[in-house]
């Protein structure tokens, strides 16, 4: 196995990781600040992708499509927050699970009702398509590099938002003590709505960006949702830094595991059996990673110790 291939796989793992981060960031904020388990986060991802595909189909502009994706997901996020979630902050996690599960059903079938049962078309814009040659002679798709950059930029911006701005201070305070910041005159329900919209917009953005290289279809959000939960649990709930590191860990484990485990097994098994058992193990790899992390640090890597 050549060095070039290994570097390329690491880039792939990074790219997968930063896209997971976009999903996980919103989820971990909502989870950390409001204590809400939002299963419907995957639906917001799907809404982003569908909105982008529709707008790209109408206007042909990828930038407009991305903006539409964020807008649509944010609007959907605010709607759910105001109509449903707001009534559930006081209740236990179980009611939230049931309510957001119900929302998944409504959004998935609603989308299918509006857009039909077949996948939609959304492609990467011409100016980002095709491969570029990196130093060292590695050919790598330009669009994936763009995804890595966008992901890291968002991560940086979120970091600044949390540490440097007024709203960031409120978010951090809200995580620690709801009553106290309410007493200090912060409109807590408005803060919640803003966080929800922000998280939703990020999910929508991820859906649109990833939708361009994958397929835009009903049900695309649920597998990503489960992975995003894995990410935030590994990273520690409520921590943006944890979400970033967790996302990169999951991305790299999944990608590299899929490549190297079968190779490893080939050392002592015949090729097709090694291929089958190696890929079986690699599909379990991230869950094993999560299990190990939680057994080692029960509140995730960067979670608050209680």
């Amino acid at each position: 196995m050549s060095t070039i291939l290994i570097i390329e796989q690491i880039l792939n793992g990074l790219q997968f990781g930063v896209m997971l981060f976009l999903m996980a960031a919103g989820l971990t904020l909502i989870f950390g600040v409001m204590g809400l388990i939002n299963l419907a986060h995957g639906s917001l991802y799907m809404i982003g992708a569908f909105a982008a595909a529709t707008v790209a189909g109408l206007t042909g502009s990828f930038v407009l499509a991305l903006m539409a994706a964020m807008m649509a997901a944010a609007i959907a996020g605010v709607l759910i927050e105001v109509l449903v979630i707001r009534r559930l902050y006081a209740t236990d996690h179980l009611d939230q699970v049931l309510a957001t599960f119900a929302l998944i059903l409504i959004f998935s079938e609603g989308t299918r009702w509006v857009f039909g049962s077949f996948p939609l078309f959304l492609n990467i814009p011409d100016y980002f398509s095709g491969p570029v040659t990196l130093p060292g002679g590695i050919e790598y798709p330009l669009y994936r590099l763009v995804l890595i950059c966008v992901g890291l930029l968002v991560a940086g911006a979120l970091g600044l938002l949390i540490t440097r701005t007024r709203i960031g201070i409120q978010i951090r305070a809200g995580k620690d003590d709801h009553e106290m910041i309410a007493a200090l005159g912060v409109d807590i329900s408005k803060l919640y709505t803003v966080i929800f919209a922000l998280g939703a917009a990020l999910a929508g953005l991820a859906g649109a960006l990833v939708g361009a290289i994958q397929s835009v279809q009903v049900g695309m959000g649920e597998p990503v949702l489960i992975l995003a939960f894995v990410v935030i649990v590994i990273g520690g709930i409520g921590s943006i830094k944890g979400a970033l590191i967790g996302a990169l860990l999951v991305g790299l484990t999944d990608t590299l595991g899929g490549v190297f485990l079968p190779e490893l097994f080939k050392l002592f098994m015949e090729p097709s059996a090694a291929q089958a058992s190696g890929s079986a193990l690699s599909s379990m790899a991230i869950y094993i990673l999560m299990g190990v992390v939680l057994v080692w640090r029960p509140a995730g890597l960067f979670g608050a110790r209680k």
Binding site: I4, N12, Q15, S215, L256, G258, Q275, S279, S283
Partner: peptide
Amino acid sequence: VFTKLGQTDYASEIAQIRA
């Protein structure tokens, strides 16, 4: 190569094809 059922990202398989 056997991929994961429901997998949506094939970057690593494509890299293997290239190599």
